[in-house]
């Protein structure tokens, strides 16, 4: 990654997504601020229930009841706030500005329609016009970009391998040259060799299009290899942000530190380091810092004071009282 100042493409401020349940309100995304740069690969990491998937669904405006976006803004550099778009504009916006590469390619392709047909139909539905031949040529080009032969256009999804299906989904996602590609564990159902091929393809396309990719997942190895910057989520909060090298080599938040030391590697055999305690329940979250009941470095203050996001350096943030100056939270009398 280069050191030049990067332009912010999407500015997310105070994003809140809540779920109304019988047992109360769950804050699935809890006051998240995040800036995504133009043309970067950003990895959002978290365990199940951390809010990472909910966050990208919010950007796509695909949160369904009982969930709802309870606050915040997500403003593109041209002034468009994704969270304020009308339903009609949400649809227009998809694929053109924001596109999604889904987790299970199997469920997102229409099983009874040929690949080429569904790609052309999607483009037409999003306002593209042209003759049948023009669409055929566009489909062939898109397939070529993702490493598929043009004949794939005439096949049905079930005739493709898992990796080919995922490539077809990527071709669909980039069909209108989106500026932001959201990818939710796009390779979790694939074998590792195929995973590597798909991620390499996604990176090449991202570079070609100059798009920003927001990759969501829990595989720390994949994040380390694909992303340039990463954000760590815990219980709906963004707890740490930084360059991939900084976060992996010099993690600051106690949760990130434990998460990184819990990753199995080819360095250690017979030793196991987990994170103490049990995962968080969003319906019964602790006061103060959400991680304090499991945190080995927690102090008495952590049970009462909710940490804000502290700026540690350019593009480097952490949400932990260890890094906050006392006086910021001294109650005014």
């Amino acid at each position: 990654m280069n050191n030049q100042a990067r332009e912010v493409m999407l500015d997310i401020q105070g994003l809140e997504v809540h779920f109304e349940t019988r047992r109360g309100l769950a804050r699935a995304v809890n006051d998240v601020d995040l800036q995504l740069y133009k043309g970067e690969r950003f990895g959002l990491v978290g365990e199940s229930g951390s809010g990472k998937t909910t966050m990208i669904l919010a950007l796509l405006r695909m949160i369904k009841t009982p969930g709802f976006i309870a606050g915040g803004r997500a403003v593109f550099d041209d002034g468009t706030d994704l969270l304020a778009l009308s339903p009609e504009d949400v649809r227009k916006n998809r694929l053109r500005r924001v596109a999604m590469v889904p987790q299970g390619a199997m469920n997102s392709l229409n099983p009874v329609m040929r690949i080429g047909q569904q790609m052309a139909l999607t483009m037409r539905e999003h306002g593209e016009v042209g003759t049948g031949e023009e669409f055929e040529a566009r489909v062939a080009k898109l397939l070529d970009q993702v490493g598929l032969v043009p004949e794939v256009a005439d096949l049905y999804p079930h005739e493709l391998s898992g990796g080919m299906k995922q490539r077809a989904c990527i071709a669909q996602a980039i069909s209108l040259s989106p500026r932001l590609i959201l990818a939710d564990e796009p390779t979790s159902a694939l074998d590792v060799v195929v995973q590597r091929q798909i991620m390499q393809t996604l990176r090449q396309l991202q570079l070609q299009l100059g798009a920003t990719v927001l990759l969501v997942g829990h595989d720390m190895g994949l994040m380390a290899q694909f992303a340039e910057r990463v954000g760590i989520m815990y219980g709906g909060k963004l707890v740490e942000v930084g360059s991939v090298a900084d976060v992996f080599r010099n993690p600051q938040h106690p949760y990130t530190q434990l998460l990184i030391s819990s990753i199995p590697s080819f360095e250690r055999r017979g030793t196991f380091q987990g994170i103490p305690g049990v995962g968080l329940s969003l319906l019964d979250s602790p006061s103060g810092c959400l991680f304090h009941p499991r945190c080995p470095q927690a102090t008495e203050r952590c049970a009462h004071v909710e940490p804000g996001l502290t700026q540690l350096g350019p593009g480097r943030q952490v949400s932990c009282l260890l890094y906050e100056k006392e006086e910021t939270h001294a109650a005014p009398s």
């Binding site: 490493g147 990796g163 590792v192 060799v193 195929v194 995973q195 590597r196 091929q197 991620m199 390499q200 990176r203 595989d219 720390m220 190895g221 994949l222 994040m223 380390a224 290899q225 694909f226 991939v244 090298a245 992996f248 080599r249 990184i260 990753i263 590697s265 080819f266």
Partner: peptide
């Protein structure tokens, strides 16, 4: 092909040595 949790390796760039 296993992505190792160590940033900066050539995983994303190195050609995959397998026919697809």
């Amino acid at each position: 092909s296993i992505p190792v949790p160590d940033p900066g390796s050539a995983w994303i760039e190195e050609a995959v040595e397998e026919r697809d």
